[in-house]
Amino acid sequence: MNIHTIADHLNSLADNSDTGMSFDCQPISGEVDVLQISILGREELPVFISVTEDQILCICYLWGTDEVKPECVNAMHESMLEMNIPMPLSSFSKIGDKYVVFGALSINSSFDDVEHELAVLSNNAVEVIDDMSEYLL
C-alpha cells in the first residue's frame, strides 16, 4: 500500500465508488510523498494522504489559527475535545498554525477501507466547519 496504488485505485473507481463520491488524485512530490485528493463538488477541502511504515494518514485542513475569533479559542478547543469521540473515524489535531481533522489507518487496510475513510473524513470536515463557524471570523 503506497500513495500510487491508492491513486490508481481511486482513479479506477471513476463513478463507481460505493460512497457516491468522485475522487481526483494528484501526487505531490517532496521529501515525503503526499497524495492530494479532491472530491467532486468539494474541491476547496482536499484530503491529503501520506503513507508511513505502519500507517496511512489522511488529513483535511480546516482553518488557520488566524481565522479563530480570539475570544472563542478556549470554547472552540473544548468543543473539539468533546466532539473528538462522537465524530466517526476522524480526530482533531493541529499542524503548525492549522487545525485539521485526520484519520489514521493501519498499513494493512483494504482499498475499501481507504475509500470509506476518505468519504467519512470529508463529510466530517464539511460538518465541522459548518457547526463551528460561530467560532470563526
Binding site: I28, W63, G64, E67
Partner: peptide, 21 residues
C-alpha cells in the same frame, strides 16, 4: 515533511488558500 510538501505545492501553484468559511 508532508506539510512542507503541501505548503510548497500551494505556494508554487499560486493557488490561494481560502478561509474555512
Amino acid at each position: 515533511k508532508a506539510t512542507s510538501a503541501i505548503t510548497d505545492n500551494f505556494s508554487s501553484s499560486n493557488s490561494k488558500l481560502l478561509s474555512a468559511k
